[in-house]
Amino acid sequence: MSHKQIYYSDKYDDEEFEYRHVMLPKDIAKLVPKTHLMSESEWRNLGVQQSQGWVHYMIHEPEPHILLFRRPLPKKPKK
């Protein structure tokens, strides 16, 4: 599979999560399941490479070739 064609967005966040999206080329996108969110082993098997802790959290129906990921931000110590 062509890992060079996978595009990784910059990371962005809110108060709770860090987010990123990953755009897959058409040949890989056709392998994305339409019935469920992928486990880490499933998206890694497609060639997506990112650190541990990312969760495929949403399917964007109009653009199924874009995978939406998030992971919890580290808890800030209370002052």
Score class of each variant (00 low, 15 high):
V55C: 09
E18W: 04
K79I: 12
H3S: 15
G53Q: 09
H60R: 08
R20T: 04
E15G: 15
V48H: 06
I59Q: 11
K30L: 07
Q50P: 01
P74Y: 12
L68T: 15
K30C: 09
P72T: 08
D10P: 14
Y8C: 07
L68K: 08
W54R: 02
V22I: 10
H36M: 07
L24V: 11
T35N: 15
L31F: 10
V22L: 03
E61W: 06
Q5A: 15
K30V: 08
S39A: 09
P33N: 08
H65G: 09
K79Q: 14
K76A: 12
D13Q: 14
Q50D: 03
L46Y: 00
Q5D: 13
K26A: 12
V48I: 15
K34E: 08
L73Y: 07
F17W: 15
S51K: 06
Q49G: 05
P33W: 01
I59M: 12
I66R: 07
I28D: 06
D14A: 05
K76D: 14
M23D: 06
M23A: 11
K11V: 14
W43I: 06
H21I: 09
L73W: 06
K79Y: 11
H36L: 03
S41M: 13
H60F: 13
Y12W: 15
L24Q: 01
S41C: 12
H21V: 09
R70H: 00
M1S: 13
G47F: 03
V22K: 01
A29D: 05
E16N: 14
M58N: 08
E61C: 05
Q52I: 08
P72Y: 09
T35A: 10
W43P: 04
M1H: 15
I28T: 09
A29R: 05
K26H: 11
D10T: 14
D10R: 11
N45V: 07
P77F: 14
G47P: 00
L68D: 04
I28K: 13
L46I: 09
D14C: 00
I6F: 11
W43Q: 06
K26Q: 12
Y12H: 09
S51R: 05
P33S: 08
Y7V: 15
M58W: 05
V48K: 01
V48R: 01
M1Y: 15
K30A: 11
I59C: 08
S51Q: 09
V55E: 14
E61N: 10
E42N: 09
P64I: 01
M23E: 15
G53L: 02
V22Y: 01
H21K: 15
Q52V: 10
Y12Q: 13
E63Q: 10
L46V: 04
L37G: 02
M1W: 12
Y19E: 05
S51D: 14
P72D: 05
V32I: 11
D27R: 08
I6D: 15
R70W: 02
G47T: 00
K79G: 12
L68N: 05
P33M: 03
K26M: 12
N45Y: 09
L67V: 05
N45H: 11
H36N: 07
G47Q: 00
